[in-house]
């Protein structure tokens, strides 16, 4: 287990490690209202690794994802995707990223296949057929009869599967998941965990923000606990083997334990 409070500017830190797909280097974000949402975050997610960020609301998890997606510019440090600095080359960085949001909201008047087609095309996958889309939708567990249904008739679990299918079809080396299991029923949650395992097997680097300690422990290779914009704890699965993660999490959240 290591404390993530790192020194700010070691030159060797900025060398590109080819197996590192997602990397935050002293990444900071202070909003215009003065709130420091992220304070010198350093983390790495390698190919074939799942990194789960735990933390309460406002801890900085979504800000981290927004910075990787370049929805916002950092006020300090860098977010890199496959070695590409997101705020300098956002389009290039995004072509290496797939993203699944907490509430997958696709175009409600489109069918699952039409949504797949649109998102595949804007991801640069132009040569695919509806059969290819159907195959991926089957793979994520969306039944064939739902493929031609409009998204407005889908349950949250079905939409989530569609979102994963869109992330899969992009076939990007890095995947960002923002609270992906929130609101899913146990069956859908289970299926989702299986899908994540498959992504790992395919060598994807997965960065996931979640409140779900139990699923994080089940699937993640690396777990980070965030509090007030800082990564207060980062530990590998093995390091946490004998620990009560829930207790640890509560201690960090209550402030009784500090890095």
């Amino acid at each position: 287990m290591k404390n993530s409070e790192q020194s700010l500017s070691h030159p060797e830190k900025f060398k590109v490690d080819t197996s590192v797909m997602l990397e935050a280097l002293d990444l900071s974000k202070r909003y215009e209202d003065g709130v420091l949402a992220l304070d010198r975050l350093n983390l790495q997610v390698r190919s074939g690794q799942i990194f789960a960020m735990l933390g309460a609301n406002g801890a900085g998890k979504t800000t981290t994802i927004n910075l990787f997606l370049n929805y916002i510019d950092p006020t300090g440090g860098e977010a890199r995707v496959n070695g590409i600095t997101t705020h300098k080359n956002p389009l290039q960085a995004k072509s290496n990223l797939s993203y699944v949001s907490e509430n997958v909201t696709l175009y409600p008047n489109f069918t699952a296949l039409q949504n797949m087609d649109f998102f595949a095309r804007i991801a640069g996958k132009n040569g695919l057929s509806y059969a290819d889309y159907a195959e991926i939708l089957n793979r994520v567990g969306l039944q064939t009869e739902a493929h031609h249904k409009k998204l407005k008739d889908f349950s949250k679990g079905m939409r989530q599967k569609c979102g994963i299918a869109i992330a899969i079809i992009k076939d990007a080396p890095a995947v960002l998941l923002d609270e992906p299991t929130a609101g899913l029923d146990p069956q859908a949650g289970r299926e989702f965990i299986d899908l994540l395992s498959r992504l790992r097997e395919e060598g994807k680097a997965v960065l996931m923000s979640t409140h779900d300690i139990f699923r994080a422990r089940e699937i993640a290779d690396e777990i980070g606990i965030m509090s007030a914009g800082r990564l207060v704890l980062q530990a590998g699965k093995d390091e946490l083997a004998g620990e009560d993660l829930e207790k640890l999490y509560m201690e960090y959240m209550s402030g009784s334990k500090q890095n």
Binding site: Q92, K94, S101, T105, L106, F119, I122, A123, G124, L176
Partner: peptide, 12 residues
């Protein structure tokens, strides 16, 4: 609806 966020997760 959130579709804008998803669209701009791509190189658009």
């Amino acid at each position: 609806t959130g579709t804008l966020r998803l669209v701009f997760a791509n190189a658009v």
